[in-house]
Design a protein around this nucleic acid. Structure first.
Lengths: 156, 156
DNA sequence: GCGAACGTTCAGAAATTTCTGAAGACAGGG
DNA sequence: CCCTGTCTTCAGAAATTTCTGAACGTTCGC
């Protein structure tokens, strides 16, 4: 079944690129598996099979990805197992999360501006501060624009 | 000299937050040192002293940060040493770099869309693709808007 | 050209992250 | 209640990343 091989390969490729973007390895593989399954949801056991890793690894990775708000636990009648699926807004959520690290950087820079007297260092830090402030303000606007655009069709 | 201690501490804090944003440890420390020095530029030796690390570490970190386009080599008359300084556009450059990893993700997702037939997986992947495409288009616009705004004063 | 000052490279040590497997907790059916 | 299937936790193994120190280049003044 070469179709199936292709699918898995594409999933692994996506996982790799997410790792490149700063995600943990196993978290990325789990998230990617959720993206590529034809099922509505997956259990921890199914993930372990699909990825060929231990139950422990899956447990840790699922926990982390869930905490990031990228997947959610759902209840499936007649099944004792825990089912999970990607959330609709996973990608905008992920993007927003990256902006909480931007926020950390910004706070550090602001402390820096206070810690130095006038001079070269101050000038550099103020420039940096201005850019990061700008980013932090504009990012939510961007996400909202995407959502509105997608909701309302191509052009209202 | 408590002022000096404050400065170093603020520098280390900034480095830490940059690490949180995905930078290598030593690269972040080097970049932060450049931000916080009152001098116009620094040599590799000065960096090693300031950070208390080996010359080898500095060499590697400087090389990487320079390749990222965040610092530049400058020639100082009457000095045999290599001087470096942060580039003005370091932060917009760093932001743009992050969008080259977004580009990687997008390419992987597009391959994914091709690899699966119609169904749940396809739907999820298409949504993801649309968002990343949107991001990739809008990011440069954002940067340009920042630069124009900063250049031209608050409102021309 | 020689010597001194700097910078670079790289093999291996150290630290950190990641994964596993086994033991245990928990829920629900019988 | 106990048993079974499922998930979680965690100590330690494995893999990976990061740093160092010593050997080697390079450049410039003399």
């Amino acid at each position: 079944m070469t179709r199936e091989t292709d699918r898995r390969q594409a999933a692994e490729q996506l996982a790799l690129s997410l790792v490149g973007a700063g995600m943990q390895r196993m978290g990325a593989r789990v998230l990617s598996a959720f993206m590529f399954t034809e099922q509505e949801s997956l259990t921890a056991g199914e993930l372990a099979d699909e990825l060929g890793v231990s139950a422990g690894s899956v447990s840790g990775a699922v926990k982390m990805v869930a905490q990031m708000g990228l997947i959610e636990r759902i209840h499936v009648a007649g099944s004792r197992r825990e089912h999970f699926r990607v959330r609709d807004n996973a990608w905008t959520t992920l993007y927003s999360r990256q902006h909480s690290v931007v926020d950390d950087v910004l706070r550090a820079v602001e402390k820096g501006v206070e810690a130095v007297g006038p001079g070269h260092a101050r000038d550099r830090l103020e420039y940096m501060r201005d850019f990061y402030t700008f980013l932090l303000n504009e990012a939510p606007v961007l996400v909202e624009r995407f959502e509105r655009q997608r909701r309302g069709g191509s052009r209202p």
